[in-house]
């Protein structure tokens, strides 16, 4: 039995990756939940907004790199992020003007808006492919590791290595900052409160003189910023590939719904719940169990509940389980 090695292995293969992934999902789910709260539909184009946002960030990153501008040990993409957000906001606000507003004026049913957002999703997807291609792109140019597995082993004398990639730390730190700013905005500022009021009771918000078009613009801006940040962090942590972002839509929706659509706290909780379950269920626990269990009890099999190809199934099992018992999600969102 070797608990120390078990803990290190657990941290290295499960806790750290799942925390970073959870932060990325949480940011994505926050965007979905804010659009749902204000515009009252599930925005299927969110994954592709993330892809488009990340693509613009990559293009700007390349531009900065060509000009020799960088952030030293930090990835240049962080510097490109504000520009990427601004560019993506233009596209999203343009889409709202050209597409969504038409249906809003007609007071279209949410299900129609969902279908509309699917159309937007396909167009954005194509646009991103035209813009940057379909290949995998690695645009992380910062320091790769904060803790290197080999250095860790040498320093501690343990058999297991612990690797902490800088992108994982950047992800978590950025997510914490973004969430803090978002909650400050929603709970402390006049505009943020008016958004919550609009989400709570649209008619009464109108009676109070809250301008719906303004609230909608703010919602899109916030969702776009969240999408671009989430997409960029995901791309830095792994690689950028348009199709992966399309697939990311599934766990993001699962996170938002599990937490309760329209509830920002729920989106964050849902993001981490989905991430930890996904990583936990698809991880082969043989190594950790080998360290943690008494001698002679080591398992023969891999102890992997599901192969990684099925990781998206995990989101849906959780989704069904939660919705069966709490139909509005863990944090009392609006009913779906």
């Amino acid at each position: 039995m070797d608990l120390l090695n078990a803990i290190v292995a657990l941290a290295n293969f499960v806790l750290i990756p799942a925390t970073a992934y959870g932060a990325q999902l949480a940011l994505g789910a926050l965007g979905v939940t804010i659009i749902y709260g204000i515009l009252r539909f599930s925005n299927f184009a969110h994954g592709d907004t993330m892809a488009f946002g990340t693509a613009t960030v990559i293009l700007v990153t390349w531009g900065f790199q060509a000009m020799g501008i960088g952030l030293g040990p930090l990835p240049t993409a962080l510097l490109a992020l504000p520009v990427g957000i601004a560019l993506t906001s233009l596209l999203v606000l343009g889409t709202d003007r050209a597409v969504y507003r038409f249906y809003r004026k007609q007071k279209a049913a949410p299900v129609i808006l969902v279908i509309v957002s699917m159309g937007v999703m396909f167009i954005m997807n194509g646009l991103t492919r035209f813009l940057i291609g379909v290949d995998e792109i690695n645009f992380d140019d910062g320091t790769r590791f904060i803790i290197n597995a080999r250095d860790f082993k040498e320093a501690t004398g343990l058999a297991e290595g612990l690797a902490l990639r800088s992108t994982q730390v950047i992800t978590v730190v950025t997510a914490v900052l973004v969430v803090a700013v978002l909650f400050w905005f929603l709970n402390r500022t006049r505009t943020g409160k008016s958004m919550r009021a609009f989400s709570d009771n649209e008619d009464l918000a109108l009676l109070s003189g809250i301008n719906p078009e303004r609230v909608v613009v703010y919602a899109w801006l916030i969702a776009t910023a969240l999408a671009t940040i989430a997409g960029t962090l995901y791309g830095l942590d792994k690689t950028f590939k348009v199709f992966n972002y399309f697939q990311l839509l599934l766990p993001i929706f699962a996170a938002a719904i599990v937490g309760g659509l329209g509830s920002p706290v729920g989106a964050i909780a849902g993001g981490f719940l989905i991430a930890f379950s996904e990583v936990g269920v698809t991880y082969a626990w043989k190594k950790v169990a080998g360290y943690a269990l008494p001698e002679g009890l080591e398992p023969d099999g891999l102890l992997q509940l599901l192969s990684t190809e099925y990781k998206f199934a995990v989101s849906f099992v959780i989704l069904i389980a939660v919705l069966l018992f709490k139909p509005t999600g863990l944090f009392k969102g609006k009913s779906v």
Binding site: K193, S194, A197, D200, N201, A205, G209, I210
Partner: peptide, 22 residues
Amino acid sequence: PQTSNVFPTMTVEENLEMGAFL
């Protein structure tokens, strides 16, 4: 209004603030 005349997830004070939004 007769029904749904408050912002349910907001605090009482925030409800009053929203009344004075303009």
